[in-house]
């Protein structure tokens, strides 16, 4: 005769056994956890990438500025000399460089196509300025240039750097919001699934209460099951998401936005933390649902 004591089982395993194995609905929890974690990996990648991008744009653009000179032909050389002289005596400038006509043509080529008759166009002179640490006083330099070379305009890129950096941090905020929504949705779905499971098994719960089971014992059976299912699903979803991100083309030096979507360095730990976080979420959601439901029964 085989008796339950004959097969060794830990109390925790036996707590799992007292609730009947559930059918197809069990897969829904695993699937939901997997899908949500998969989405979360991308939301995470988006947030981290846009965060990096915001920093990179701010830094890279802050370090260089351009002086643009548009002046009548006879004035061009005089004012160029005046600008160079001013730059030479301004503190906080690491280097400066007059961009020659050939290079200007090359810079413009992508926009206007090759074979541009540059001589016929009023192309401004460009001077690239690289700031030192601590940087030059931007307003002071502007005033000096106005006095000594009225055709010169200092463009320190703040005008278009700011909206770009703002856009990047806005995208990051959206990413974080998405992660929060994904988490809330997952908690809601697991709660619904747990409630359904508890309702389906109300007869079994009644039997367990009748033989003296505490709520915590009954809850444990459900909580363990849902936590494990979520953990499994989330691990799968995170792995799939990571594969997807890893399969994206590598970020190139130009740091285009889409190609920059990925994880670098310690960031890789974030997606790895998702399955345990999902499991904790499932644990709390199921536990809450279980105790709520159990209070309805005697």
């Amino acid at each position: 005769m085989r008796l339950p004591t004959a097969k060794p089982a830990s109390p925790a395993t036996r707590a799992l056994e007292v609730v009947p194995p559930s059918g197809p609905t069990a897969w829904l929890t695993t699937f939901t956890a997997g899908a949500m974690t998969f989405l979360c990996v991308f939301a995470l990648a988006l947030s981290l990438a846009s965060g990096r991008l915001a920093t990179r744009w701010s830094e890279a653009l802050a370090k260089t500025a351009t002086i643009r000179l548009s002046a009548p032909e006879e004035q061009v050389q005089i004012q160029t000399d005046a600008i160079l002289a001013a730059l030479a005596t301004t503190p906080g400038i690491a280097s400066y460089r007059l961009i020659d006509e050939a290079e200007t043509t090359r810079l413009l080529e992508p926009w206007f196509g090759p074979g541009l008759p540059i001589e016929d166009l009023p192309i401004p002179r460009l001077i690239e300025v690289v700031e030192a640490d601590p940087p030059y006083d931007s307003d002071g330099l502007k005033q000096r240039l106005t006095a000594e070379a009225p055709g010169a305009i200092l463009d320190d890129h703040t005008r278009w750097r700011r909206p770009l950096a703002e856009a990047a941090s806005r995208i990051r905020l959206l990413g974080v919001l998405s992660i929060a929504l994904i988490g809330a949705t997952m908690a809601a779905m697991i709660t619904l699934a747990a409630r359904a499971a508890l309702a389906t098994n109300s007869e079994e719960i009644r039997v367990l209460r009748l033989v003296g089971a505490k709520d915590s014992y009954i809850a444990r059976a459900f909580v363990r099951r849902f936590t494990l299912r979520t953990l499994g699903g989330a691990a799968f979803g995170a792995a799939a998401g990571l594969l997807g991100v890893a399969a994206l083309p590598a970020a190139d030096a130009a740091g285009g936005f889409l190609t920059g979507l990925g994880f670098t360095g310690w960031d890789w730990l974030w997606p790895l933390a998702l399955p345990p976080l999902a499991a904790i979420l499932a644990f709390l959601a199921t536990r809450r649902a279980a105790f709520q439901k159990l209070r309805e029964l005697t």
Partner: peptide, 19 residues
Amino acid sequence: KFLDHMTLAANMALPFTVS
């Protein structure tokens, strides 16, 4: 009422199991 998915022996042991 019993737990229909568990054997009779396991059902009889239930009061022990749950405590």
